[in-house]
Simulated assay, not measured.
Amino acid sequence: MKTNESVENEGLLVRRIKNGTVIDHIDGGEALNVVKILGITGATQEALSIATNVPSRNMERKDIVKLTNRELSKEEVNRIALISPHATINIIRNFKVWEKKGVEIPTLIEGIVRCPNPGCISNTNEPITSKFEVTSKGLHCKYCDWVITKDLTSHII
């Protein structure tokens, strides 16, 4: 019979993936937001594994998302960086980590975030994309000067 301690030391019982992406070190409780901003629904083709509130040596708790047969674009990685700046992206090919990189929050974000100001020119029919500067106070709209300071997930396009 296994004790609780021996079960905890066995690690996660989530199946390895042959090809795809593992998003690790997601801030605890943010995995479902990551899935949402990647546009993954029950109707999409990739198999998905999610682990939430997993103990971590480097973080109090973390989430993990595994996607089969899908590698993320730079724009998708930038979206993840906005809600989980400590996340790491692991590209898996033939069951091995092919590439591992951390996310980086860009200094200028274009076309990823929607301005919450209904009067902003980026929310009209003008042929422009939203532009935000990343500052210590939050995301600063380059068109109307609004600053988004929290709940970024609801503004990510």
Rank of each mutant, 00 (worst) to 15 (best):
M1Q: 10
K2M: 15
T3D: 05
V7S: 14
V14M: 13
V14F: 10
V14S: 12
R16M: 09
I17V: 09
K18P: 07
N19A: 08
N19D: 15
N19F: 07
T21L: 04
I26A: 08
N33K: 13
I37A: 01
L38S: 13
I40Q: 03
I40C: 02
A43D: 10
T44W: 05
Q45A: 15
E46Q: 08
I50N: 08
A51F: 01
A51H: 00
S56M: 06
S56K: 05
R57P: 04
N58S: 15
R61P: 01
K62A: 13
K66Y: 04
N69Y: 12
R70Y: 06
S73G: 05
N78W: 05
N78P: 02
R79S: 13
I80T: 01
I89D: 08
I92Q: 05
R93W: 00
K96A: 12
K96W: 02
W98G: 03
K100R: 14
K101Y: 05
V103D: 03
E104C: 05
G111P: 13
G111L: 12
V113P: 02
R114E: 04
E126H: 15
P127F: 03
I128M: 08
K131C: 11
E133P: 01
V134R: 14
L139Y: 10
H140G: 03
C141P: 07
K142H: 08
K142Y: 05
W146R: 07
L152E: 04
L152H: 06
